[in-house]
Write a protein that binds this DNA or RNA. Structure first.
Lengths: 209, 209, 209, 209
DNA sequence: TATGAATGAGTCTTCATTCAT
DNA sequence: CATGAATGAAGACTCATTCAT
């Protein structure tokens, strides 16, 4: 199908570098057919967002509920996002190239679809947790959402690369989930309390400069 | 200068979508001149990596020392990377588009420059920490490096966007550093031990709204 | 109706530049419909001439009678032509573009419809008048017909333009008729005989209506 | 030369229907060359007007002087226009198609070149003549300019056609000049005073050259 | 060293036309 | 009768590249 060919090629080469001709070729039709269905490059991009990205975004964010705990929200989103990305392997590339980038061809279109209310729910919960002392104060309640989505996209996009460089298997979905959720919830450093019989005054990181 | 024009355009439009003609125009010369200095798109990409990206990479990784603590390494890298990116605002876009992506035009070139030995130092330190119980066991010693670099690139690339969506100022370098380092080292959740009725309340960041 | 849309577009853009697609759009149908009714651009052009231009030509020339005076013939034709053009505002443009021009798309089709016999009547009357000394000898009996038709087409086609350039109202049909008929019959220069201190009541041409 | 090929093709097929490819072919170069010199269709049209039409217009209108008689002005313009058109046989077609027509591609460009002041000189002289009783009152001082130019363009454009229809030679420049000037100055009807048994040699207009 | 001229290949897009329904 | 789908050809225009100067 045309949209399928298009999304794959967008992931492979980027949207700007993907000509109608290539999409047509990949889909086994003539370039004019692509124009017949998507009169315009804009129309094509719209269709990609409307028919492919929007449902994914919805499936990730819809289950977020106001009174979930932060940990539940986050691990839930990470889970659903990893699952969604596994079904749509073209997403991470495209996300990073066409949405996160300032002039990404899909940026505006996707931003309009972002469930800002749901995002605010997380922000609110994080801020509340910080006031109550259950969430680390260094974390920014707004940025954390970008960190979360970004970590998933980034690690799924580079999963193959990791295996390549370090000559091992690409990390599985389970490994990614464990790493990402672990990082988001606990960070690197082990709880002082969890450690064997030690005080934790010295917990603040010392930086060289 | 030609390379300067090129890197900016790469950040704005992506490397594949940046023609010699536009680079020439931006630099105020004729397309033939660009072709004269960089006989090939490959040569141009090589030059960008050699003359612009490699020094940055070196400045970030060189200071990493075998016997630093993990926290020191990480906060140091994050610091230097944030500083380097501030001097080269074109980097985050390009990094995400052309390096992290599977078919990114700079990927292979940059990977060869990655100081794998330094990366292994971090991986080793993390793994050691996990054996010693000082590093959270969920964290993947290899993936953490990608998380770290990725978080910096991601947040610097989307700093403007954040301000846009939430109608506030774009987060400053200091805010980004605090958030990223905090996330990497502590994660969201507060130490159980640190919680009840204890000190750190005053650490909260004040935001305007 | 399709032919109406077509004639308007021919006048606006020229026949060669008017695609089936635009005609269809203007008429509110699909391009296939246009093609269904006029299998060919030629068929469409034929239809325009047969159904729209031919009746107009007939209405202009039919009343010309062998024994009318030259003045009667000419003012009659000018009158009827101005009236016909007012009902079919698309005609002047198309006439100049597609009929008078060497490769005009309607030229051959229309020339076959030209009532050559009627044209010859005028030519004959003019030549006779010249022999009798009532018609100015500089006038070419053949060219005068082209002058006559051309002046009407030209002035109706440029009526709007005149208003535009000279910031006045576009000349009305009455003004055009007076100017054109006056020019054809009397030219610019006033009769020497008619000049100072003499009556000239009889000089005005009598028109049938 | 490219412009020469272009102007000829514009006359033959109309500007809208003349593709860069045809111009290139006619000039014996590749289509890209045409784009190299005229980056745009607009640029091409500009060049046609600037380099080909403007000089012609100037050569026709420049000699018009405030205190010439109307007859001198008109016969002078007709003469120079006929001569100019003879050197540039592509002009009449193009004039009628692309300048007189409402959406003609050259219309706006040429109108800006029209020497409005010179046109006003004629209009003024005609109006003055009408007040003094030397110019026929039916003539419109503004329209007469369009009649004059139009008659030349029209008759030169259809000169071939005339020969065709009436199976005679195409009218020569001299014939055209005599007919057009005669029509403009005297019209069809012979002076009442000049009629009975009189020569009319003296009626011929004196032209400067 | 630098550049204007030139070009073949490729881009998006529109067109007239066909065909199955 | 009418039309949505499909397409090959051609449109304007851009590009990387070559070459002579």
């Amino acid at each position: 199908m045309l949209l399928t060919a298009a999304t794959r090629l967008f992931a492979e080469q980027g949207a700007a570098a993907t000509s109608f001709a290539v999409i047509a070729q990949r889909a086994g039709v003539t370039p004019a057919v692509v124009h017949y269905y998507f009169s315009d490059r804009n129309a094509l991009l719209d269709a990609v967002v409307d028919e492919r990205l929007a449902p994914l975004i919805a499936s990730v964010w819809d289950p977020v509920e106001e009174d979930d705990s932060v940990a539940t929200m986050i691990s839930g989103i990470v889970d659903r996002l990893l699952a969604g990305v596994e079904r749509n392997p073209w997403v991470p590339s495209t996300w990073m190239r066409e949405i996160l980038n300032e002039n990404g061809l899909l940026r505006k279109r996707v931003l309009q679809r972002l469930p800002v209310d749901k995002v605010r729910i997380i922000g609110g919960a994080v801020a509340r947790g910080q006031r109550e002392g259950t969430i680390h104060p260094d974390i920014d309640p707004v940025l954390i959402v970008f960190s979360m989505l970004g970590l998933v996209m980034l690690h799924t996009a580079t999963a193959g690369l990791v295996g390549n460089i370090f000559h091992c298997e690409a990390p599985s979905r389970a490994v990614l989930r464990r790493h990402i959720t672990g990082l988001l919830l606990h960070g690197l450093e082990m709880d002082a309390a969890a450690q064997p019989g030690r005080a934790c005054g010295r917990r603040r990181v010392r930086r060289k400069r």
